[in-house]
Structure formats: C-alpha cells, structure tokens
Design a protein around this nucleic acid. Structure first.
Length: 548
RNA sequence: GGCCUGUUCGUCCAGUGGUUAGGACGCGGCCCUUUCACGGCUGAAACACGGGUUCGAAUCCCGUACGGGUCACCA
C-alpha cells in the first residue's frame, strides 16, 4: 500500500516528531492560537473576526498567534489568495507572529506552515495509526459509497461510513492485497472506537460543555492523492504546532467528537476549543451566514476598497465580540483598543447580525477623533492603492489637503462627516480647481434655480471686498452688513418678523455663496472654507460666477 | 430526517429570582445654527410561545414553535 499513497519521506516516528516540535517555551498560561484559512480566492470577514479573537487571546496571555495555510484541497485552490490573506491581515493590524509572512517566507520553528508541504508529517502519523490498528485502507469507489448512502436511507439509518456499513473495515489482508495488486485507488480511514449508544461530554470555552453521541464514523484521514483531510491535518498540526486554544467557527461543532476521538487515539492532550458563532445577515425573514457569493460586504477586500480605517473595522468587530467594549471605549477615549481584554467565556453563543450602519457610526466617531494629519496620512496610503487619481490631487499639496481636513476639526466638537476614505474624493473634491471645474455645470444650474436669486452685482461686490485677514466675528459682521444692503435679513428671526421687507435671510445668502464656491449646498463652515480656499480662489470663483 | 445549537427593542449588547427591563446604533420630534455634520433634550421600540417550580421568573425546569449548523476523498 505504501507504493501509491505514501511518499518515501513519510518515515518519521511519533517520537521523532515530538522531538522536532517540542513543547513551546512560553510562560505558564500563555495561549498559542492560530488562523487556518484555505486559499480559495478571497478573505472572508469572518476570518478577520476569528483572527482578531485568536490574536488578542494569544497576545493578552503572553502567547503567540500563527498562520497556517490549509491548502490540502488542490482542486479548490486559487492562486494569489495567500498574498491576499496576508495583505488583509496586515491592513487590519492582525499579522501573525509566526508562519508565512511574505511570498513564501516563513518564520517560526514549527513549520512548514503550509499543509501541502507537511505531507510526510501527516503520513507518518497515519502509518502509526495503521500499525496500531486505528486506521485501515478503504478501496470503496464513489459509486459504492453512493449505493451505501441509498441503502442507509432506505433502512432509515444514519448515513455514513460506520459500523457494519463500513465495508472495508474488516476485510482480510488477502482482500487488501488483491485490491492493491489491481492498483485500485484507496484512502485511509479511521477505525472509530465509538460505541453504539456511547455519549461523550466535551469542553468548550464558550459553551462550557457539550454532550454528543460518540463518533462512530470511519472518517477519511488520507485522501487518494495522499493529502490529509482537514480532520487529520487539524489534529496533527494543532498537536505538533502546540496550539493551546483552537478558535474556530461553530460549523465544526458537529465534527468535534471525531476530532476528540483522534486526539485520544494518538494519546495526545487536546487543546481547548472555542467554537464561535459566525457573522450573519438578514435575508428576508430569516438570517444566514454572510456569503462571499451574494454579499459584497462579506469580503475583507470590500472594506479595504471602501477605505474604512483599520481601527473602525477592528472596534466594530470588538463590539460584536463583547458588547461591553462600547462602554470601555467611552470610558477610555484615545486609549489603544489593544488594552481592552477579550474574554472567550463571555462571547455570545448566538450569531451576530452584521450592521453596516453601526460600523459607519463607529468609524465616524473614530475619524472624528483623529487629527487632520493622521487622517491625511491614512487616507493618502489608502488612495495610492485604491484611488490613484484622487491620490495625485490630494498628495500634491499636503499642507492644503490637511488644511481642508482641519476645517471644524480643531475645536471641542470636531466635525464627524467622514466615515471612510472613499468619502473624501466626493466630499472635498471642490477644493481642487480641476475637480471644481468639472462641477461647474451643476453649480450653474443650481444657482439659476436658487430662490431667492442673488441680486445683480452682489457676487462681484463680495469678491471685491473679501478680506481674508478678518477674523470670524468681523467676517460675519461684514458679510451680514453687505447682505443687508442687498436685501438679506441679518438672521431668520428678523426675516420671519417681516418677510415682505426682505429678499431673504442670511442663510439664503450663505447658501448662494456655497453653491458658487463649492458647487454644493452642504459644506463645512463657510468662514473656514473661504479661509482654506484662499483669497485667490474665492475671488476667482465669485468673479466667474458673477458672469454666469 | 437524525444529531448539535440558539431565541431580550429593527440591530449589537447589559441583565444570573424582586429593575418603572438599561445603554449604543438606526428611526421620529424639539433645541442650537449661515447649510450640512456635530452637540443637547426627548419619543416610539423587546424578554418567541405554553406549561410548571416559587410569595415572586427575562432569569430555574419541561415542552412547543421558529432560526442556524452538520451529516464529502471541502475546509
């Protein structure tokens, strides 16, 4: 059987492997956790969520977090995914301490960290199981397995390769040799020891303890191509990589008894398990897992492209992990979210529904607390990757861009209008002359439709008299007086008291100026806006508009 | 279908036998105001259902309903 499934290198004894991957030298209580994505095309937000939990649990205990690429299914593998995963983790500050870090480069003594390169390790372990009688070869074809399931359905018996249904479980050596001689493809299966009505109680960090029927399935350990299944790879890797805490989605709950059985047969102490609930979304009247297929926001790339600040995504996720994070954040403004302690025991058992509005709110608050310089730096990094045209404009004059961002940002109650970096281009584009030029048609239409229309000569008069040296109060006084001379009441109250006596009120005048200067009605503070635009732009734009 | 698991405002959480069931996001109103955003005040909004146990149940027990997961040579 060795000839067509085992590689010649698969000759380690268990003791040799134990010596090669010794227990880690870490302080007592330190947790070793991992993220084990399979490289099938994209990075799911759930992977980021799991990584965040795992990494924090490890770091806050003085342990480490490693990355293991679970690429045992060559059919599903999509080139470039590992790079994408690495970039996603790096973007959100979740880079692993150990494992693959960049184009094939690894750090750590417990590798290789790609399962496809660990074949000899898995196979050596399977050899041992074979020797112990805990595993056996199975030559059943896909058709035979299907026939098996059909028969089981007919007999109303649980489907699967178990008990007396496990046709190769008790074949004689002669039968095996004959199949081998005929070069039939085969797999290696676990010889399950679970009893018919046996039940097992297994610990779980989040749910305390769980009771299941014992595993009875002779699950496939080694596939016909010699690669391990997830089940075998998980048990072998988490043992030899010395994982202390497996944090994984609760879709693994059902196979937990099987994994527990394998740890037992190997004679290994299993790690602690924390099965976390997936992030879901509403779908009509029911809820379901976020799916990469139909939900763009399921993909980490979506957040990267939109330019959500790193900590916005992280803090939103921390909120899902533990609702008390929000209170902690309110009580500890400005403190790094790394100082917030995660407790697996407190994690919610039910799946959380993804809420973009909440993410936006978290992000808005976070950006609101950032300095103009910090926003500039982060946004420029984002723009150079995702919006090159904007990056050119935005980066051309850093001082000007930062002055734009600083409008209404330096006081007690900073402006909160930026959610994500991709908001920037449409929101502040008008500060840049070339973008402003493109907006002119809209501005002209808006001004023409404006009620009350600005009177003849007023814009030119404002342009002629604008003095950027005035402070805010002086500027207001000046503009109010000028407006009054053109029939604009100084405030709404005066206007409402005698609506027929005025053309409009000061707000109407400010609205007209906004349209002309910014090509839109909604802008930050007009005084600061004009300050930042500078006298030349203000005069030029007002002057041009006088002739529209 | 079997097995596992879950169910407090629309959403995320708090609540571990006695609370007017609390907060946050979102939504509505009012105020502030040169628009927008901010900020302040305020409103609507929940214990899935049915039985127990108990002086008393969102909280403990049992059922029911409805979700989710899983039953692959995918992870």
């Amino acid at each position: 059987m060795d000839r067509n499934i085992f590689t010649p290198e698969a000759s380690f004894t268990i003791d040799e492997l134990e010596a090669r991957f010794p227990p880690r030298d870490l302080p007592a209580g330190a947790c070793v956790t991992r993220f084990g994505p399979s490289p099938t095309g994209s990075m799911h937000i759930g992977g980021l969520y799991t990584s965040l939990v795992s990494r924090r649990v490890a770091h806050q205990s003085g342990g480490l977090f490693y990355l293991r690429i679970e690429d045992t299914d060559r059919k599903r593998e999509v080139a470039g995914t590992v790079e994408l995963i690495l970039a996603s983790l790096a973007t959100y500050g979740l880079s692993p301490d150990e494992g693959e870090i960049a184009d094939g480069k690894e750090i750590g003594q417990y590798g290789p960290y790609r399962q496809s390169e660990r074949k000899p390790i898995y196979q050596s372990c399977v050899r041992w199981l074979l020797e112990q009688g805990h595993a056996y070869p199975c030559f059943a074809s896909a058709e035979e397995l299907q026939a098996l399931r059909d028969a089981q359905a007919k007999h109303k018996v649980p489907p699967g390769y178990w008990g007396t249904w496990a046709i190769w479980r008790d074949k004689t050596a002669a039968d095996v040799d004959a199949a081998l001689a005929a070069s039939q493809p085969f797999v290696i299966r676990l010889r399950s020891t679970g009893g018919r009505d046996e039940r097992v109680t297994l610990p779980d960090t989040i749910r305390e303890s769980l009771e299941f029927p014992a595993n009875q399935t002779d699950v496939v350990l080694l596939k016909a191509d010699g690669m391990p299944t997830y089940h075998l790879a998980h048990v072998v890797d988490d043992h030899f990589m010395r994982t202390t805490d497996v944090v994984r989605g609760n879709e693994w709950l059902a196979s937990y008894p099987m994994h527990a059985e394998m740890f037992k047969l190997f004679g290994w102490v299993p790690p602690r398990f924390a099965h976390i609930s997936p992030i879901e979304k509403n779908d009509g009247s029911s809820r379901r897992k976020l799916s990469k297929r139909s939900d763009p926001e399921a993909s980490v790339g979506w957040y990267m492209e939109a330019g959500y600040p790193r900590d916005a995504v992280i803090e939103y996720l921390l909120n899902l992990i533990d609702g008390r994070f929000e209170d902690w954040r309110a009580a500890n403004p400005g403190v790094s979210n790394e100082d917030f302690t995660i407790e697996l025991e407190r994690m919610n058992r039910a799946g959380a529904l993804f809420d973009l509005a909440k993410l936006d709110s978290v992000s808005r608050d976070l950006v609101g607390a950032m300095s103009a310089g910090a926003i500039y730096d982060a946004a420029l990094v984002w723009a150079s990757d995702h919006a090159s045209e904007f990056a050119t404009r935005f980066g051309a004059d850093g001082a000007y861009s930062q002055a734009i961002l600083d409008i209404e940002r330096h006081g007690e109650r900073p402006r909160k209008d930026i959610v994500k970096w991709s908001d920037l281009a449409p929101d502040i584009g008008y500060f840049f002359d070339d973008t402003y030029a493109g907006l002119l048609p809209e501005a002209q239409t808006a001004l023409a439709a404006l009620q009350p229309a600005p009177p003849e000569g007023m814009l030119a008069a404002i342009a002629a008299a604008y003095d950027p040296a005035l402070d805010r109060d002086q500027w207001l006084e000046w503009l109010r007086a000028l407006g009054l001379s053109y029939g604009y009441a100084a405030n709404v109250k005066a206007f409402k008291a005698a609506p027929d006596a005025f053309r409009g009120h000061f707000g109407d005048l400010a609205g007209a100026l906004r349209i002309v200067l910014a090509a839109r009605r909604n802008t930050p503070d007009l005084f600061e806006l004009m300050q930042v635009l500078g006298k030349d732009r203000v005069v030029a734009r007002l002057g041009a508009a006088a002739g529209w």
